[in-house]
Nucleic acid binder design. Sequence first.
DNA 1: CTAGGGTTAG
Length: 612
Amino acid sequence: MLIKSRKFSDLKDVFPRKFSSLTTLCPSSSPITKSPFPPSRDDVAAIADLIEKQHWSKLKLLHVKDINNPNELFHQLISSNLDPELCLRYYTWLIANIRNTSLSLELTFNLLHSLANAKKYSKIRSFLDGFVKKRSDHPIHSIFHAISLCDNLCVNSILADMLVLAYANNLRLESALEAFKRAGYYGYKLSALSCKPLMVALLNEKRFADVEFVYKEMIRRRIQPNVFTFNVVINSFCKKGKMEKAKDVMEDMKVYGTSPNVVSYNTLIDGYCKLGGVGKMYKADAVLKEMVESSKVSPNLTTFNILIDGFWKDGNYSGSMKVFREMLEQDVKPNVVTYNSLINGLCSGGKVSEATCMHDEMVSAGVEPNLVTYNSLINGFCKNGMMKEALDMFASLKGRGIVPTAKTYNMLIDAYCKSGKVEDGFGLKEEMEREGIVANVETYNCLIGGLCRNGNIEGAKKLFDQLSGKGLPDLVTYHILMDGYCSRGESRKAAMILKEGISKMGLKPRHLTYNILMEGYCKEGNLKGAANVRVQMEKERRLRMNVASYNVLLQGYSQKGKMEDANRLLNEMLEKGLIPNRITYEIVKAEMVDKGFVPDIQGHLFNVSTKS
DNA sequence: CTAGGGTTAG
């Protein structure tokens, strides 16, 4: 089918010269002469023949010597009922082999229209994929204009749909969204096939509002969503913590003739598990009940894994075990994720030996431990002062051919440093580098912290200076080093280092940064110094005093017996509406209440939470 | 389309 293109309406003006005879196409039989255009029907056929037989060298010669406007020739080829696949092959060859060839958007989409008419959809898909990868300089509106030059709405919709898909697959989200919008303006109907990858890509970038926009547009434009698209939208709302909206989508599904499946329910249950606050597991449980009883959807391995992880993270390990037993009863086989969650729960609860048992249990159940398993166990051992066990686990990980990561090493290095064995920490760092694993800023932070704790601030500073050369130190590095100086009574030095970091590294200090300094000055009894830090923090960085900052100053003033100042600070903090925490109360109680400076006002003033 | 882990400062 021929596609009308305005640009080529008057070909006579474009091709002033006459094309030569067929013989020019065959360099072996006669020498090539500069040939005029346009090509005759026979010439086009001859070129088509060359393309079909893949006589690329002859074509190349022709292009170099005779053809000075590939756009025009290409237009002729497309218009000559030549098989669109051959045109595509020629197009691809042309772009790759003839220097400075750029075929116009109009021609490009002319070709795609022919391909679409021939229903060569997979060819279009891969073409567009390459198109958005390489030729990224075309504005979307031009592309849509090129699409619109054909008046077959159905074909245009297919092209627009595949374009959106190509952008989404290549994570060019702005372009994908713009194409999605323009398709709407042009009245092209997209499909769930391209909307789903678009929403998935948006969700991966946490662009929840955009996911919602696409979803609403789909409904408005009457693009029929399927279970998968609905599930992505549900997931998006869940990840944003908007559980009510997620449930609304579950209802939408029913309106559109689909029902929630096990993935929909799992997503919703996981949403509740990851929600903060009390009673979330109760809600997760309620969804489970609804799923099983009302919707007759059976929980699967993922359902159980979500719940097991949810319960221990809610501080309810026995809840996890209950779910675990339940899944065994229902003959759902636990996998490595199941065991890793259980092991993690045990490790974080300090029950390291039980975690080891669970590891043995998983092995005897025929489930292979993976890096996650080992890292959890190693971390558990490290945090509980069981260095030997941690190293044993590390050895068996390597023995099984699992490649540790920098984080695996960092846990061990940190454990060494925290137990005063900084040298061993450095030894491990060398080992990791020998194995080709790059020591990262966290590695150095552990080591610098270890040196500071060992009183080797000079060594720490030296290592820090090496990092500065590489632009590696981050805010945490500064905190560690500053803390090191402060605890030696050298808060001024710490302040100097911070100042340098701000000006040379573009460091962005936070409350903690200044709190470290204020605490340092307070401990030196230099309340003026501490007050200056506060001024600096509020003026230069526009950070307002938070509860932690007040706690530092309260401690400093009250310990120096400056009770009036301490009292003033306390009132100031309360007037600002800041809610004192447990640490505040402990300071006030020990320094002010017990010494008779203020009455014990815990009852009505302090909202003392059990967490710090 | 849904599930798991790990490092530094606090």
